[in-house]
Design a protein around this nucleic acid. Sequence first.
DNA 1: TCACTAAGTGCTCATTCTACACTAATTAAT
DNA 2: ATTAATTAGTGTAGAATGAGCACTTAGTGA
Lengths: 232, 232
Amino acid sequence: MTKMLNNYNSEDKVLLSVDCIIFGFDNEGLKILLIKRDFEPEKGKWSLMGGFLKKDESLNKAAIRVLNFYTGLQDIYMEQFYAYSEVDRDPVERTISVAYYALINIENHNAELIKNYEAQWFSISKMPKLIFDHNEMVSHAMRRLRYRTSTKPVGFELLPEKFTMRQLLELYEAVLDKNLDKRNFISKINSLDILVKLNEKDMLSSRKGSYLYKFDKEKYDAQLLNHFVLNL
Amino acid sequence: MTKMLNNYNSEDKVLLSVDCIIFGFDNEGLKILLIKRDFEPEKGKWSLMGGFLKKDESLNKAAIRVLNFYTGLQDIYMEQFYAYSEVDRDPVERTISVAYYALINIENHNAELIKNYEAQWFSISKMPKLIFDHNEMVSHAMRRLRYRTSTKPVGFELLPEKFTMRQLLELYEAVLDKNLDKRNFISKINSLDILVKLNEKDMLSSRKGSYLYKFDKEKYDAQLLNHFVLNL
DNA sequence: TCACTAAGTGCTCATTCTACACTAATTAAT
DNA sequence: ATTAATTAGTGTAGAATGAGCACTTAGTGA
């Protein structure tokens, strides 16, 4: 056992990076945003969006910066979930990476920037092999997302501002990877009392048209202490 | 927006540390193990057990090493839960710290080592002010522990190998910080089918004596896929 | 006006949760 | 030996929640 050192100078310093798992959702299902690396190592391979932490920023800031850099997106809800630190996870140099996930609305996404960086949406089920330990990160992020789904109304971030119950249902089905009963789902969502039904219908998905809903942030914030659990 | 750099050499390196939140439990309730720092800065103040990551070890290994260093304990279940990275969290030098929590059995603890390092158990409710952001880490760890309590039989690590139902109940009450109904608790625990009732009584707590139980790791492992949720 | 499509809506039964109080076993004191 | 004291141990009923299931309605296009 080594003696604990009592001064900072003799300690090892390491590279710290952040990697961002960006989930999106559209009619085709749950997707993830990947980039084709434009630098070595593994140039040309698919990878998560990542970047190194700078001396003068927090990890949260770094994650926000990286996301913004690749997508132009701002003010996105991101959550840190794990630090990956296996010694040889990056073959070039020892790098510890802190992974974040974010949920974004595919429609809001800046297509220009994605194009510039050769980023591309992939269906979760058709995701390619990624570099390093990025596949592992994605599966951990999915697990975390599933859990979050049942304790916070996290899913609304993945939809347009106005959405139908069907869209919400399909989002939950995609995240939880199981079929849900339409009637039970709607009554459970309604019992949370965080949606507003609009006097407006979406006529694209059916002849009858289906009512649009909005997430009511005020109502949600008002009950934040309640810490709901949604059992789907 | 800065250009993403495509070589590792020009990136900032930082100090990375681990901090360990060690929970213990005895007749008096839930406790936490703290040390009096024997080096600057903040020498003499109370703090979590921590140490710097070395170039050739993973964070998990570092956490295990640090815990072992301060307590002599080995083979302890530790869980990483968050990376703290505010720029000025450590006044001496930029340090990112990854926090872990562990649950240990106070009786098994090596009193010698604690003494050597001036470590001391504190009741959660009487914890002193800690250095840096350590108080925040502790409250996050408590929150995580509460959550874990309802999805994994995490509590058993805090008890002696053989324990009474009352002890288990009091442990859960301490972790969840609320009163639980004895009968409901016992039937819920029994329905998990992960305890073995021994033909042995603990005569210390009452005249009648109460049966001792053991955690049955085999049964638990066998149902690991079931992923229970314990609603207390 | 008919055919088609997705929207919208309740009920029943099963399961789980919650609240609640008495008896049993043993020891210590007299 | 009897009594007092203490904690262990045990069941039920009513409430709430969860799960499974099918028909009617509205609107459009042919």
